[in-house]
Nucleic acid binder design. Structure first.
Lengths: 116, 116
DNA sequence: ACAAGTACTAACCCTAAAGTAGGTATCTTA
DNA sequence: TAAGATACCTACTTTAGGGTTAGTACTTGT
């Protein structure tokens, strides 16, 4: 999906961090510009591709599916496609995805207390 | 410190995310390759520059001070320099920095439950 | 016949984050 | 006199994340 140079120090350090530090591991799953926002939007229930797109107006379609695919590959999100025309695809949080809510909540609490 | 193109869509989207989503805000403070690791190392108490460097062998000096400076600018870390030769500088978590421990803990818990 | 709605895909480019390689100052100790 | 210890700094290069633009398939409504 995104070409990665597996021999680069950059990549090796990343792997190191992920395996050595659980926080880093979690961050690779929910980090990035869009994942927290997508997950947040799915917290209130499953949504169609188009609904997500409208809910997050500034995201491009490329970023939206790319992130959805990654979340799906990481088993944080389930994709439910109904074989109809026009397509009907719903994305919803998996168990692991829902289990992120305490993580998100603690971050929100911290942000509210210590922002500016 | 790091030249930023303020007019880029990339940058604008980032600002959007930070202001709209508290999770994104928190992630800008503790995200990246090294910050979680540095913070984790400071959780057990203040440490000198050199101690941190030895505790995180794969980090380069550039990345170490760069991240320490950012953490300091964000008031997550305090820098205490004793005016002696050779220099003696200690870094310790601020109140806001210590307050991250529930955030880190929830991430660790999630990682332990849902990794692989 | 053509636009609209749906959920994507692929090619390409730009930039911020990370890494590489070198240098600085001051004092103590050998 | 020169090496070692300490905490940095600067210029440069590489990598990966994000953005832009265009196009796909299939059917319904006009």
């Amino acid at each position: 999906m995104t070409a990665v140079k597996e021999s680069s120090t950059n990549h090796l350090n990343k792997l190191d961090a992920i395996t050595a530090c659980p926080v880093s591991f979690t961050l690779t799953k929910i980090g990035g510009r869009w994942k927290p926002i997508i997950i947040f939007n799915l917290m209130t229930g499953g949504k169609r591709y188009g609904e997500l797109k409208r809910a997050i107006p500034t995201i491009t379609e490329k970023m939206l599916i790319q992130n959805l695919k990654e979340l799906e590959a990481d088993n944080l999100v389930e994709r439910i496609a109904k074989p109809v025309i026009p397509p009907h695809v719903e994305y919803k949080l998996s168990e692991a995805g829902k289990a992120l809510s305490p993580v998100m909540k603690s971050m929100v609490d911290w942000a509210r207390k210590y922002n500016v």
